[in-house]
Each structure stands twice: as C-alpha cells, then as structure tokens.
C-alpha cells in the first residue's frame, strides 16, 4: 500500500477548509458591518452569524472526516 498517496489524498480532502474559512470570514465581516450600523440588533446578528458559521464550518469538518476515513479505514488492496 502506498501510504504516501493516501497522505496526499487526505491533504487534498482537508483543502475544504478553504471554502469554510472564506465563507465564515465573509459572514463575520458582514455581521460586523451590520452590528456597527445597527448596534441594537447585535444579539440577533450574533445568533444568525453563529448559525451561518456553524453551517459553513460543516464543509471543513466533512473534509476532515473524509481525510480521517482515507487515513484510518482499511481499504481492500
């Protein structure tokens, strides 16, 4: 079994973190803008940002899980 190729595959799978990072960054920047424009709605905006970030983060987590599956599940040769 070529462990090196598996490691590369796992690394590629973890690249999903890109999307999650960009998505959460955009969401948070918009949330900050929203709070500075309307400070009284901070509570609601925080909640919505949290939901959005959590959902966006799911992609990164799926990438991590796929990488773990690639690394730790025994594949038939």
């Amino acid at each position: 079994m070529e462990t090196g190729l598996f490691a590369i595959a796992a690394g590629i799978a973890v690249l999903t973190g890109f999307g999650a990072g960009i998505g959460i960054g955009i969401a948070t920047s918009r949330a900050a803008e929203g709070v500075s424009r309307q400070p009284e709605a901070a509570g609601k905006i925080t909640t919505i940002t949290l939901i959005g970030s959590v959902l966006a983060e799911a992609t990164a987590i799926y990438g991590l899980v796929v990488a773990l599956i690639i690394l730790f599940v025994k594949w038939p040769a």
Partner: peptide, 12 residues
Amino acid sequence: SLSMRLFGNILG
C-alpha cells in the same frame, strides 16, 4: 453533521 461537527472540532 451534528455528530461530525462535534467530533471534528474536538478532535481537531
């Protein structure tokens, strides 16, 4: 997603 989010974050 519930299980993997918790698992992935804590494991990470």
